[in-house]
Write a protein that binds this DNA or RNA. Structure first.
Lengths: 168, 168
DNA sequence: CCTATCATGTAATCCGTTACATGATTAT
DNA sequence: ATAATCATGTAACGGATTACATGATAGG
């Protein structure tokens, strides 16, 4: 049994596995893309390597399909659930960093108008997407994703406002 | 002469070197911490390794102090300036990701109140810090950093609002 | 003088990205 | 049938983080 460090990626995989039950990496990929992936993207390769990492330390268990392609199937273990609970319980005071490439360029002297036009458009598109998701969200979606989406919307609104002002 | 890929870290180092002129890694560290570091933090080790990387590809030049500690001194080269100009010129449509640990926890079912109380406080503190910086900013600070800070303030306001509402 | 703290650097590890590759399914 | 796309995986590389370590300087 390996010792591994749990990263945000780890918790995403654990969280999705808890919600969805036994899943293949590809299923994880789909699930992430349609939910938490909106504000925290993962490379598809990570959905193959991370479950393996987690399995090596007992946070998930791995089985293979008996027939056909013998794809890998992962399930969260009690150890995994415990880690997830623990992580969920302790609040963090860590703050987001605004790691936006456009903001870096702005900081170092890029032409604000040009930059802002493109960014305003991109952020407007993203905002529209978020609002569409919110407006067609089934009633049984739990509050967590709902609230996270709300934060995304607020952020996009602020961004659109900012860049539009800069674009003049 | 190596071929290297330029990352955001690279542009931060180049950008700071352009502004500050010949600098030691430690000076870079100080400069970054007091400016762009507010929304894009770097590990101090990167301020040692990244200039070296950049030097290996001719974007900066390295000399050593003649006396005493023989510290390394880096200067941006014409090649470095060109790369920076190029990067500044092309707008990007890349969008920020809201990679906030607290938001992940919220998404996966953490207790909103507990989380929100801590986050609201942390974001309020950061907001106050930003506003203090803005209010005491010398007149000769160029528009780039000024505007980036403004975006930071907007974002923090949205965050404070969001978490305060959640905290109830 | 002694001890914190500031300053300076290196090495190892590891996660995340990128690139490569091939098997299955669907559409034309 | 064939091309295109979806699905599934592996390997290599490299940048970022972490840990380690030592030299200078200032404060007590």
């Amino acid at each position: 049994m390996q010792e591994i460090r749990l990263t945000p990626t780890s918790y995403i995989v654990l969280g999705v596995l808890e919600l969805a039950g036994e899943s293949t990496p590809y299923a994880l990929k789909q699930l992430v893309a349609g939910s938490v992936g909106y504000f925290w993207t993962l490379q598809h390769a990570q959905l193959y390597t991370e479950p393996e990492r987690l399995a090596s330390a007992g946070y998930v268990s791995e089985t293979r399909e008996e027939t056909g392609r013998r794809r890998r199937l992962y399930t969260i273990t009690e150890r995994g659930r415990a880690a997830l609970r623990q992580w969920r319980t302790e609040p963090t005071s860590e703050l987001a960093e605004l790691r936006e490439p456009a903001l870096l360029k702005l900081f170092f002297g890029a032409d604000p108008k040009r930059l802002a036009t493109v960014q305003a458009a991109a952020n407007r598109a993203r905002l529209a997407e978020y609002e569409a998701i919110r407006d067609s969200m089934p009633d049984d979606v739990p509050p967590g994703p709902r609230q996270a989406l709300e934060m995304g919307i607020r952020f996009e609104r602020a961004a659109v406002e900012f860049w539009e002002e800069l674009a003049g």
